[in-house]
């Protein structure tokens, strides 16, 4: 399994990572070698084996529908790069 540079750029875009040309080439190699490693999986027959998502196979617990939290906006906004009027600010979103 060998990735093309185009593939790397597409993945990086999906993952929102800025890559320059040099980065893209490096990742092309390093991702390909990981995928080669991962390719070993295809050697084993897993027909009829159910995928396992959680080691314990427990079931979801339910929370009572009650409001337990108070307004902590100021504490929550304190880490934000840019805020105004209680809002997080980001570069203009165009729909």
């Amino acid at each position: 399994m060998s990735l093309e540079k185009q593939d790397v750029l597409k993945i990086a875009h999906l993952a929102r990572l800025a890559l320059d040309d040099n980065d893209a080439e490096q990742y092309q190699h390093s991702l390909t070698s990981v995928l080669d490693l991962v390719e070993q999986m295809q050697s084993v027959d897993t027909d009829g084996v159910e995928p396992l998502s959680h080691p314990l196979e427990a079931k979801q617990r339910l929370r009572e529908d009650v409001v337990t939290e108070e307004n902590r906006r100021e504490a929550f906004l304190a880490n934000a790069p840019q805020t105004e009027a209680g809002l997080f600010l980001v570069p203009k979103v165009i729909d």
Partner: peptide, 28 residues
């Protein structure tokens, strides 16, 4: 519901911005 799907924040409409939020709703 009174509270959110995955947190204990209130679901009331029209509150001041970001006042009905918890660590969970903010993706902390």
């Amino acid at each position: 519901t009174q509270s959110k799907l995955f947190s204990g924040a209130a679901t009331s409409f029209g509150a001041e911005p970001n006042t009905n939020t918890t660590l969970v709703d903010l993706g902390m």
